[in-house]
């Protein structure tokens, strides 16, 4: 696995990363559009002293296991193939509650060859794109989640780069997130509880993004203002 930046591990919260990371979703403020809410958060971050550092993107494609495999008892299981601009040479393949595979980026070509077993549900492609901010040793990625043409919600990923054990720095991350997200700071992500004292890995971030995307997909019928 190679990352574009020189930085190595760290913990993130809501979304992704190699250090302590948290990924969370911010509800769109009452009576505002997704774009306006993103701008509001960006302004708060900048007021805090965070510097803009380019952009980022995370995308996720859904694959259905095809009928041939379904007869062997795998019916209906979904596989997600994800990319993260933070790890441009890697590709992540995840099952819900299942293993997370980290592969080279040409894994995508392999999936095309396997289309007899896995079928791409193109309509389900979802992605989050936005700006990357740095504040001291924190990395914040503020993204707009889009599915097809429409903006569905907002993702906030916070990484505390110096710390490799996610649980160690959760309280610290929480305090930082509250400083610009207020009461919308999330609860402890489920990946953290299974990690105990092992080091945080980029896959853990992708799991958090996958869960976030799934949550947003389920909300798709709900009007934008109600996304939570």
């Amino acid at each position: 696995m190679q990352r574009r930046s020189g930085r190595s591990d760290g913990v993130r919260k809501v979304a992704s990363g190699h250090s302590g990371v948290g990924v969370s979703q911010v509800p769109v403020a009452e009576g505002k559009s997704v774009q306006q809410t993103v701008e509001l958060l960006a302004r708060r971050l900048e007021a805090l002293g965070a510097d803009k550092q380019g952009t980022f993107g995370v995308d996720c494609e859904t694959y259905h296991t095809a009928a041939a495999l379904g007869t062997q008892g795998q019916t209906g299981k979904l596989m997600y193939v994800m990319h993260n601009s933070e790890y441009p040479l890697s590709c992540f393949a995840l099952f819900e509650n299942g293993p997370c595979l980290v592969a080279d980026a040409n894994f995508d070509t392999l999936m095309v060859k396997l289309k007899g077993f896995f079928q791409n549900a193109k309509a389900n492609k979802i992605e989050s794109r936005g700006t990357r901010y740095q504040y001291c040793d924190f990395l914040v990625k503020l993204g707009t989640v889009t599915m097809g043409p429409s903006a569905r919600g907002i993702s906030v990923e916070v990484e505390y780069c110096p710390c490799v054990i996610a649980n160690d720095c959760w309280n610290l991350l929480m305090e930082f997130m509250q400083s610009f997200m207020g009461s919308h700071a999330p609860g402890i992500p489920s990946v953290f509880s299974t990690k105990h004292d092992s080091a945080y890995s980029p896959g853990d971030t992708m799991v958090q993004y996958m869960e976030l995307f799934n949550k947003i997909r389920k909300q798709q019928q709900v009007p934008v203002a109600g996304i939570r």
Binding site: G49, C136, N171, L172, E175, S179
Partner: peptide, 9 residues
């Protein structure tokens, strides 16, 4: 009683 001050623990 806080964790962070100026972004540092």
């Amino acid at each position: 009683g806080k964790f962070l001050q100026d972004g540092l623990p």
